[in-house]
Structures are given as C-alpha cells and as structure tokens.
Design a protein around this nucleic acid. Structure first.
Length: 418
RNA sequence: GGAAGGGUGGCAGAGUGGUCGAAUGCGCAUCCUUGGAAAGGAUGUGUGCGAGCAAUCGUACCGCGGGUUCGAAUCCCGCCCCUUCCGCCA
C-alpha cells in the first residue's frame, strides 16, 4: 500500500508507474474519493463533538431538564448515524482502490510487458559442451533412481514427485550447505509456517490479485507460496529496533496452484505444486539508498552461492510488466539448463520500500525519534527441488552419472552420484 | 472435540454505565541533587486521522466486528486469539 498523501503529491508518477506495470487502476477516481472521504469524515468529527458535549451535560443536569437534553442528544445521534452511513461505502471503495495501487517502479526498471522483456545484466560461468548426447534431468534422475514421477502422480496427482535415495540426500545436502553459507552472511535462521491467515497475503501484496494461484483450506486459511509471507507476518504490528537491519533466513514448504499454467512445464521438477525454499528476508530503515544497497547485496549473496556450486547463470533486471504489485525493482537469477538450451529462473530479489510494512504495520523509531514505516526486501536463497534441474544436467557425465559440486561433497558424503 | 478463565498503554496491572485515553507500579526521557555514580526528588512519557504557521484543538482507538444507550473499556451478540483442565494425537 502506498501513502495516500504520497499518491496525492506524486499523482503523475503513480499513474505513470501503474501504466508501466500494466496495472489498471483509476488514480484520479481514488483522489476524488479521498476528497469525499475527508469531507464526510470532517463533518462527522464535528457532529460527534457536538454529540459528545451534549451527552456529557446530561450526567450533571437536574432531573427536570434531563428529558429535554436527551431529546436534543437523540437528534444529534441520528445525524451522526446518517453521516456514518454516508461514510461507510466511500471508505470501502477507498480501501478497495488503495489495495490496488501498485508501488512505483524505480527509474532504472526497463519498460516491458513480460519476462521476455527482462534485461540481462550479468552472465557467469561457462556453459558445458558435451561430447555425448546429454540427458534431461527427468531421464537422468529417474535412471539414477533419484526421483519417481509416476508414483508422485499416483499419490499427489498432477505435478507430483517423490525424491528418493541420492535425490533426497542431495536435497538435504543443499539445505545444509545453504544454511551454513547464508548464516555466515549474518542472517538469523527461522522455520516459518506455510499455513497463514489471509491478512498476511494482503500484507505481502499477493492478495487481492493472485487469489487463483493460492491454495485455501476449509478453515479459510491459505497455503503460502513463499516463506516471505509468514516471515513478514512475524513482524506485523511491531515497533522494531533497526539499528542494524533484521535479517532472516527463513525455511518453509511452498505451495502454488500454478493455475493458468496447465500445459506449461508439465514434465519434471521445474514447476511443481509443492516445493521447499530458503528465503532471505530483510527489514531495514526507511532509506531508499539503503534499500538499494541491500537489494544488490541480497541478490549478490545468491549469485555467490550459485557460483560456489559452479552452475552457469545469468541475472536479469525485470521489466516493469514482470514486477509484482508491491515491488519497486527486481532481479531474477536464472540457471543454465543444457537440455532446454536456455536459462531457468531460480531466484527473485525484490525491494518494496514501505509498501509491505504499511500493510503489516511494521515500524521503527527513526533518528528523529519519530515512528516510521520500515522498508522490506526479500530474495530467494535457494529453492529445491528446482535447483536440482540445472545441477544434475550441468554436471552429468558420459556414463550417465552426476559429478557433485565440491562444496556439497562433504554434506552428501560422495563426489559422484552413480 | 468438551469445560472453565482471560485479552486494557513499552511491560505488569486497576477499572463493571457518565467526572476514564484510562489509577498505581515498573520502564523510559529531561532536569535537580553529586567530585562522579547509586539512592532520592521534580516534570514528562501511546497511536492513527483531520484542522492550524504554531501553541493547540477535534475525533477515533481498552483483541476484532456488530448492537443496546443521550452516553460503553464496562451491558448484549458474533468472531479471533491466549491460558488451564479433560479427550484425541505425530
């Protein structure tokens, strides 16, 4: 959510930003509505003042005057009720529009409609050149008995999978290595709930728009698609000490319905309904320069992690049309997938300024001693099993085995999966 | 799932229809005292919205949402959450 006063003062930029993101929302209608809201609210406050004063008099009034005073107060009460009734629909519509106003993209964000318009800003690593016919991860992992999609489909259904044997062990190895790697960067580890209340998804900006992609329970709770949701919710309604920023390495299962992507990536581990993710979440002071610095830092952390594994990747700067509602700027890291001859996204780094913290009511005391909404950022540390796709395909051998990247060997206990 | 109790300011905790945005204590801030500190004393100390250059004023907020009433932290209804006991259970 943006500050209504910010929207008012930066009307053109907000309109331009929404357009750039491809979000349809009538800012002028919102501002008109806000004028109306203020006017009614002001009238209501004044009427309430009258009524409060009138009611106060009654307590100390002599008995014979009471009847008359109560009668006068009743009239005021009815006037208050009428104004309240006028205000209510205005407020509801106001709130509805406010949920829809997107964060303004940073000026460095390129124009564009979809991920096809994202700009590569960095490429790292040497793509493997195989002197044999390389296998895709499905064939490779199935033949090494690391995964079972048939039983996955039988037990879970579409996009179901079992990770087995070295597939399971490799996942543990990645989690353990990632934990050690990221904790050295100063994060605090946290295991967070995947089942969350609706308000948390409003807080992060996933709702109201992404409702189709989120699982819902019979108790009207939601299965979160990222640990970011619960981690941000953890700090809701708090006044934080941000002398140093809050840095959390959160782990959770993640659930995504992938509605609307039927027929897309139907094979393998790229797009599944249930996966696991280590997520970097940061809450910092309300200083955009600082947010930008942290944003680059978070993204660099994940790049370094991938580099340590030796997987070729590139980093893209997402175009405006590929930004989430609350995101000011985003980088995606995409890993090379040899069999597909293209890069595949495994990480997203975004910053939000106070878009999320406003919704979650997360504040801190600034240097002037005033309460202020903090800034928030997040970035994938590592998602499993998606990371396995590139990992096994890039390091496969002519024999159909997989060479384990050096840093994972001590966690897995072997240097080759065969 | 059943039963009982509870949710009040940064924290603890009083308050069961008007004088309550709310006692008291702790904490915190500033000042006095001191060579310095502790102890002691004084004053101050919630948030949102609106009006105002400002001092300040108005309004709302005692888990959330409704209702009763001239008037609600207090009474009524619904919901959420917490604690204890019983049941079930990885």
């Amino acid at each position: 959510m943006l500050d209504i006063n910010f929207i008012r003062e930066n009307k053109d930029a907000v309109i331009e930003g929404a357009k750039k993101k491809g979000v349809v929302v009538d800012i002028q209608a919102l501002l008109d509505l806000d004028d109306q809201r203020k006017k009614i609210q002001h009238a209501l406050d004044q009427k309430r003042e009258e009524q409060n004063k009138a009611a106060k008099k009654i307590a100390s009034a002599p008995a014979q005057k009471r009847e008359e005073l109560i009668k006068a107060s009743t009239t005021l009460k009815e006037e208050v009720k009428k104004l309240e009734a006028d205000l209510q629909p205005v407020k509801e519509q106001w709130q509805k529009l406010m949920w829809q106003v997107p964060q303004v993209p940073h000026e460095s964000v390129p124009e564009g409609k979809s991920d096809a318009d994202n700009k590569e800003v960095k490429a790292w690593g040497k793509k493997p050149e195989f002197k044999f016919e390389p296998k895709d991860h499905v064939e490779l992992m199935t033949s090494l008995n690391m995964v079972d999609f048939e039983r996955g489909a039988a037990v879970h259904g579409f996009r179901g999978y079992f990770l087995k044997n070295d597939g399971a062990l490799l996942s543990w190895a990645i989690w353990n290595y990632a934990q050690d790697f990221f904790l050295k960067k100063g994060f605090n580890p946290m295991l967070v709930p995947a089942i969350v209340k609706e308000q948390n998804l409003y807080g992060t900006g996933h709702l109201p728009n992404d409702v189709e992609d989120i699982y819902k329970t019979q108790d009207d709770d939601f299965l979160s698609g990222t640990a970011e949701v619960a981690t941000m919710g953890y700090f809701a309604d708090q006044v934080l000490d941000l002398k140093t920023e809050q840095k959390v390495l959160a782990f959770s299962p993640c659930y995504r319905r992938e509605a609307g992507s039927h027929g897309k990536d139907t094979k393998g581990l790229i797009r599944v309904h249930e996966f696991y993710k280590l997520e970097q979440v940061v809450i910092s002071k309300a200083d955009e320069a600082e947010s930008q610095r942290l944003h680059d830092w978070l993204n660099r952390n994940t790049e370094e992690f991938i580099e340590s594994l030796g997987i070729p990747y590139h980093t893209v700067l997402n175009c405006a049309g590929d930004l989430g509602l609350g995101q000011r700027k985003k980088y995606d890291i995409e890993l090379w997938v040899p069999q597909e001859n293209k890069y595949r996204e495994i990480s997203s780094a975004s910053y939000f300024n106070d878009f999320q913290t406003r919704r979650f009511n997360i504040k801190y005391k600034n240097d002037a001693g005033k309460l202020e909404f903090a800034h928030s950022l997040n970035c994938t540390a590592i998602p499993t099993p998606r990371i396995l796709v590139s990992l096994v395909e890039n390091f496969q051998t002519a024999k159909g085995t997989i060479m384990v990247p050096k840093p994972l060997r001590k966690y897995l206990g072997k240097k080759e999966i065969k």
